[in-house]
């Protein structure tokens, strides 16, 4: 017996905390960490509902979410490194010009 509703509450709490982090953090890496929280909330919901309804696509889409999170982390951190090299800061609100 899977406790579906408590786990869905947990997923939405995780999502809300991630949104709070994205809204308040200024460091670009910290924003990426908060986005990882949001992605984890989504994959937790996928897995719980997929397991509860006995459908394998819940786990499959959680797998896709994890793969895309890996892509997102790699590209995001590469952008942060490039940003640090050109603008010498990782604070998202200090980067206000598009020209490198």
């Amino acid at each position: 017996m899977i406790p579906v509703r408590p786990l869905l509450f947990l997923g939405s709490a995780l999502f809300a905390i991630g949104v709070f982090g994205v809204l308040t953090r200024r460091n670009a890496i910290a924003i990426l960490l908060s986005i990882e929280l949001i992605l984890n909330a989504a994959s937790l919901n996928f897995v719980v509902l997929g397991q509860a309804s006995g459908h394998p696509q819940g786990q499959a889409f959680a797998l896709f979410v994890i793969a895309l999170a890996a892509c997102e982390a790699a590209v995001g951190l590469a952008i942060v490194l490039g940003l640090y090299r050109t603008a010498n800061t990782v604070l998202a609100d200090q980067v206000n010009l598009l020209r490198g």
């Binding site: 017996m1 899977i2 579906v4 509703r5 869905l8 509450f9 939405s12 709490a13 999502f15 809300a16 905390i17 949104v19 709070f20 809204l23 509902l49 997929g50 397991q51 509860a52 309804s53 006995g54 459908h55 394998p56 819940g58 786990q59």
Partner: peptide
């Protein structure tokens, strides 16, 4: 974000969730 959580919690509390006994399937 608290308002967002409250909204999501209201929706989750309102919707019917699938139970394994209702669907009859074991975990995948």
């Amino acid at each position: 974000s608290l308002a967002l959580f409250a909204l999501l919690a209201c929706v989750i509390a309102a919707i019917p969730v699938p139970t394994p006994t209702a669907v009859g399937g074991a975990p995948v």
